[in-house]
């Protein structure tokens, strides 16, 4: 059975949400990994959860990237194993250079906490392989600095390399500026590395795994990677 590791930094606050989704809702094998650990050999998938690691001091994710576990995450990713960074986890992956780009304050300057709709731009990654092309997912965001920035020439290579995985859209799957919660360039909500095994996304799939809290579309992300690992 694939084993998931949820990394816990000082200041992580979605670690239990991720653990709960994986362990209690989906009945997967899952364990916490303290950020000082360095051995990830037991795990088949690493989840870097959301929160405010190190209080978001200096820049979001900028201090967490130097935690001992991050070197192991880097080599785990280099072996082609699946890694997902959610919200602050995405910010940490970007700060560590494992994913490209950077984050700015939301253009509204407000913390945004609401349901968003996402189009799936790439269904060949481990985390999206069970999702039908063209499907629109409803997954919530909760962040103050989710305004994804990347220089124009790097954006072009993201587009041409199919590294854009999720874009904010409306209920009908149309990507309009009005469906962009934070000002992200090109309505980007999630990207992957060139080989596709590392994904970062601002929306929280772990918060949309139960009908009682408004939706279950987030399950598709975890179910995708579960079946991807099982099929190997």
């Amino acid at each position: 059975m694939p084993k998931f590791g949820v990394i816990v930094f000082p200041g992580s606050n979605c670690d239990y949400d991720c653990y709960n989704a994986l362990k209690n809702i989906l009945s997967y094998d899952c364990e916490y990994v303290w950020h000082e650990e360095q051995d990830l050999t037991d795990f088949d998938c690493v989840v870097i959860p959301g929160g405010f690691s190190y209080g978001d001091y200096l820049r979001t994710g900028s201090i967490a990237r130097f935690s001992p576990v991050m070197e192991s995450v880097r080599s785990f990713a280099e072996k082609g194993k699946p890694v997902i960074g959610i919200c602050n986890g995405f910010q940490i992956l970007v700060e560590s250079g494992i994913l490209p780009g950077a984050f700015l304050k939301n253009n509204s300057l407000k913390f945004v906490c609401k349901w968003t709709h996402l189009t799936i731009e790439n269904t060949s990654t481990p985390f999206t392989c069970s999702i039908k092309p063209g499907e629109v997912l409803k997954i919530p965001v909760a962040h103050g600095e989710g305004n994804f920035f990347i220089e124009d020439h790097s954006l072009e290579s993201l587009i041409s390399g199919s590294q854009i995985v999720f874009r904010y859209c409306n209920e009908n799957g149309e990507s309009a500026p009005s469906s962009n919660p934070n000002g992200s360039v090109h309505n980007i909500a999630g990207i992957c590395n060139p080989s596709g095994n590392v994904i970062g996304m601002m929306p929280h799939p772990e918060r949309s795994c139960e009908d009682i809290i408004g939706g279950t579309d987030g399950r598709l992300i975890f179910e995708s990677v579960f079946s991807w690992i099982e099929s190997r």
């Binding site: 200096l58 820049r59 900028s62 201090i63 130097f66 700060e95 490209p100 780009g101 950077a102 700015l104 920035f149 990347i150 220089e151």
Partner: peptide, 8 residues
Amino acid sequence: KLLANTVI
């Protein structure tokens, strides 16, 4: 390394 993010 830390104090600035030279991407932005």
